[in-house]
């Protein structure tokens, strides 16, 4: 296996592991939102500005979970494609070697067709992989976007929390945890994107 193939396998495998961490964090956000809703409800008028924010956080968490679920399915397709590409590349190299070794053989020329065919299907695989990576990068971008939005909301939540009197601390804690989670998601997804970006369609 060449280093290029190895790192491709690793890049694809790392998406799945980074994303499973994102999933955990997104679920945490959704929990934080439920918490915040309960607190805001108890705080009544004092947390009036906070209530729509909790709905928004919840919505954001749900969308992130959905996105990540889709990306995971995509990552599996990408993994299969990597296996496929590896097999096709191996075949192409062996066919070329066979053709070279067969030089001078009565039927050496008949190897040309399998060689050409293997080259084409290997290149097909490579193109498909690049295409799929580009699409996946787009989906990851959407998750990043959600994470950025969550951080903005967290900042707003802090402001709203400051007007919530005795509920200030608990609402601030909610804002804190949303911010932290969004940060983690951002970092993980960023790592995925860096790992994949070298395979992007140029």
């Amino acid at each position: 296996m060449t280093n290029q193939t190895k790192s491709q396998f690793i890049a694809v495998a790392s998406i799945t592991s980074e994303l499973s961490a994102v999933m955990v964090v997104a679920k945490e956000i959704s929990l934080a939102a439920a918490n915040a809703k309960a607190i805001a409800f108890r705080a009544g008028d004092k947390a009036k500005g906070f209530q729509p924010i909790t709905d928004f956080i919840n919505e954001l968490a749900k969308e992130t979970i959905e996105l990540v679920t889709n990306i995971n399915i995509y990552a599996l397709v990408l993994y299969r494609l990597t296996v496929d590409e590896f097999q096709k590349t191996t075949a192409y190299n062996k066919f070329e070697l066979a053709a070279k070794m067969a030089e001078g053989a009565a039927y050496a020329k008949s190897m040309q067709e399998p060689v050409d065919h293997a080259r084409l299907s290997m290149q097909d695989c490579q193109r498909q992989f690049k295409r799929d990576v580009s699409q996946l990068l787009g989906q990851l971008e959407a998750v990043m976007h959600h994470a950025r939005a969550a951080r903005v909301i967290a900042a707003n939540s802090r402001i709203e929390a400051s007007q919530a009197g005795e509920y200030l601390q608990s609402l601030q804690a909610v804002a804190e945890s949303v911010d932290k989670a969004a940060h983690t998601i951002h970092d993980n997804v960023q790592r995925c994107r860096i790992a994949l970006s070298i395979y992007r369609n140029s």
Binding site: A98, A102, A105, Y107, E113
Partner: peptide, 16 residues
């Protein structure tokens, strides 16, 4: 053994 075997067979028969 695939490549050397294929190459050897090509002395006796075309791939198809």
């Amino acid at each position: 053994l695939f490549a050397p075997m294929m190459a050897a067979v090509l002395h006796h028969a075309p791939v198809d």
